[in-house]
Amino acid sequence: MDVNIVIGCILLVVVVVLLVVLTFWCRRRIERIAHSRGRSAREIEKALHSE
């Protein structure tokens, strides 16, 4: 099998998985921030780590 196909397919899968994971990771952070008392970046980081 063409090595480009192997590399391309692996790259494609990795990229798509990254897209989905990053999007839902960010969405989860948005929800957690909305429900936390943190406001500034430092407070939010602290709140997210203390959960």
Binding site: I33, A34, R39, A41, R42
Partner: peptide, 16 residues
């Protein structure tokens, strides 16, 4: 902005 004003802005989302 995060480095300079991260302590004074009210964020609804901060990236990981």
């Amino acid at each position: 902005i995060r480095l300079n004003m991260g302590d004074e802005l009210e964020y609804g989302f901060i990236m990981p």
